[in-house]
Lab assay of single mutants.
Amino acid sequence: SEIVVAMYDFQATEAHDLRLERGQEYIILEKNDLHWWRARDKYGSEGYIPSNYVTGKK
């Protein structure tokens, strides 16, 4: 599975969105859409994140 790191904070506005915290790692579950990826955080929460807010883990 692909691990990404959040470059920016993202506040979830929709129920299906996942909040991003800058510097935290997330697991990508689905990339069915170019701009919104389904991800899981370290607490096990899942939701959609803006793909341009994250970068591949170095």
Rank of each mutant, 00 (worst) to 15 (best):
M7S: 05
F10E: 00
K42C: 08
L20I: 04
Y8P: 00
D33N: 13
V4A: 06
E30G: 06
Y53R: 08
A39G: 05
E30P: 01
K42I: 09
R38G: 03
S1D: 13
K58S: 15
S51C: 12
Y43H: 12
G56D: 15
E25D: 08
L20E: 02
Y43V: 05
Y26W: 01
Y26K: 00
A15L: 12
L18H: 02
P50Q: 05
Y26R: 00
Y8M: 12
P50I: 04
H35F: 12
E30W: 08
S1G: 14
Y26P: 00
L18W: 03
K57V: 13
L20R: 01
L18V: 02
A12H: 05
I28E: 01
V54D: 02
Y48E: 02
D33Y: 10
S45M: 14
I3K: 08
A12F: 04
A6W: 03
I49V: 09
L20P: 01
E30S: 10
A39H: 03
Y8H: 09
E46Y: 03
V54S: 02
S1C: 15
I3H: 07
W37T: 00
L20W: 03
P50H: 05
E46G: 02
K57G: 09
H16E: 13
I28H: 00
I3R: 08
L20F: 04
D9G: 06
H35L: 14
T13G: 08
L18D: 00
L18C: 07
Q11H: 14
Y53V: 05
G44N: 06
I49E: 01
E21M: 08
H35S: 09
D17L: 15
Q11C: 11
N52F: 10
S51V: 10
Y43W: 13
I28R: 00
A39M: 02
A6P: 00
R40S: 06
R19F: 07
E30C: 10
Y8L: 10
E25P: 07
E21W: 07
G44I: 04
K42L: 07
A6K: 00
K58C: 15
N32M: 12
Q11T: 13
N52L: 09
T55Y: 11
A39Y: 03
S1I: 15
T13M: 12
A6Q: 02
Y53W: 06
I28N: 00
E2C: 14
H16D: 12
L29Y: 01
F10S: 03
D17A: 15
L18P: 00
Q24R: 05
